[in-house]
Design a protein around this nucleic acid. Structure first.
Lengths: 204, 204
DNA sequence: GCTTGACTTGACCGACCGGTCTAGTATGAT
DNA sequence: ATCATACTAGACCGGTCGGTCAAGTCAAGC
């Protein structure tokens, strides 16, 4: 039942894109459904045809951004032919340019959508918390694979790759948090490279 | 942990304490003034006698918590007679126990009030952003002093104390973010000690 | 006793919240 | 042609939002 140029895809996509930007640059609670509908040039009735609730929309937005992430700059940073340790530098650069690009009209840094939602929603919505947690786990796995390769090739001394990967993810989120609070993306460039110094030793 | 406060305590104090707990365990937007008034056993009119607005209340809450922080466990962690490097371990422990203690009835981790508010409000309220930024700067200064002492005593090789202090603060906030998303304070203990491995070298 | 000013009470405001519902349009399948 | 279904339109719902206000209570200062 696939219709060419189906208005479904169009409308749904428009809602998703509008919501995504608004949630990212503001917050979940601060953005209303009416506002999203206005921005997407869609009526309320259409919105609730495609999404069961505001929460459902947010879940869908998270999925989309996570996919885009995984296939976009994260994949680039992690899957290219650079030596593993240099991939971390590449990732920091990518994070910087991504933040620069997604600054809003007034030049404000939106930060990381996942980090933003995690802190806003974790105590309020366990479904969302679990979803964000899963995304963080995937990101951690990327770090871990990089670390394992680095250890294998001798670029890094043996360490607890699982824990260190989590530490690096935490550090990345922390840097973005600080950069957003300072409203200064340069923080990412200044602090980012130190991600390579993080180490958690293997327990014996 | 949200219990009505006894009407005997000072009204302003009751409002502040109630708001503090609610903002910390939920979010700014999710907590209404009426709800705060109910929790504090205060009428709306009294609320607006003591505070000009919801924003004004939040600013006051931030001040109070920042003071308590500075004089409480942060001061303990940083100002005692431990060798500087061990102070960092002490700080991680303190953060862990603090998070354990402030878990709500359902066992949810509230995370760091400042980090929570920073991500929720930075793009919406520049006054709040600036205030939170100043608090982070103060925290950074504590890290820096510790690092300088560590370098002076030879416990650490010379490094960029200013940048490394910021990195440590970012890492701490990142750890708490991750722990909150996982709803597992143990993350702090697992990842925390690696804060000592963070290094940003001096630029020549 | 009277006044002043800090504090309290609770009704009230317009705006907006997330969400529902009915009516209607457009399209593809039969 | 007709029917089912996908989608749209937008009025409407009860409730809550942050904030205002007029009318008090009460204790200290004169």
């Amino acid at each position: 039942m696939i219709r060419p140029m189906s208005p479904e895809t169009d409308t749904r996509t428009r809602i998703l894109a509008t919501a995504r930007e608004m949630f990212h640059s503001r917050s979940y609670a601060d953005v209303g459904i009416q506002e999203i509908c206005d921005g997407a040039k869609v009526q309320k009735g259409s919105f609730y045809h495609f999404f069961p609730s505001k929460q459902g929309l947010a879940l869908a937005v998270i999925d989309i951004v996570a996919d885009e992430w995984a296939q976009g700059f994260v994949a680039e940073a992690f899957d290219q032919n650079l030596p593993p340790v240099e991939r971390l530098d590449y990732l920091i650069d990518a994070a910087y340019y991504w933040q620069m690009a997604s600054r809003d009209i007034d030049g404000r840094m939106p930060g990381c959508l996942f980090g933003n939602l995690a802190l806003e929603m974790s105590t309020r919505d366990d479904v969302m918390r679990a979803k964000l947690n899963a995304i963080f786990d995937k990101a951690k796995a990327k770090f871990r694979a990089t670390l394992e390769e680095a250890v294998r090739t001798g670029a890094m001394a043996a360490l607890d790759t699982e824990a260190t990967a989590a530490a690096m993810l935490a550090y990345l989120e922390g840097i973005i948090l600080l950069a957003k609070t300072r409203n200064n993306p340069d923080v990412i460039l200044t602090l980012g490279p130190a991600i390579k110094t993080l180490r958690i030793e293997l327990r014996h």
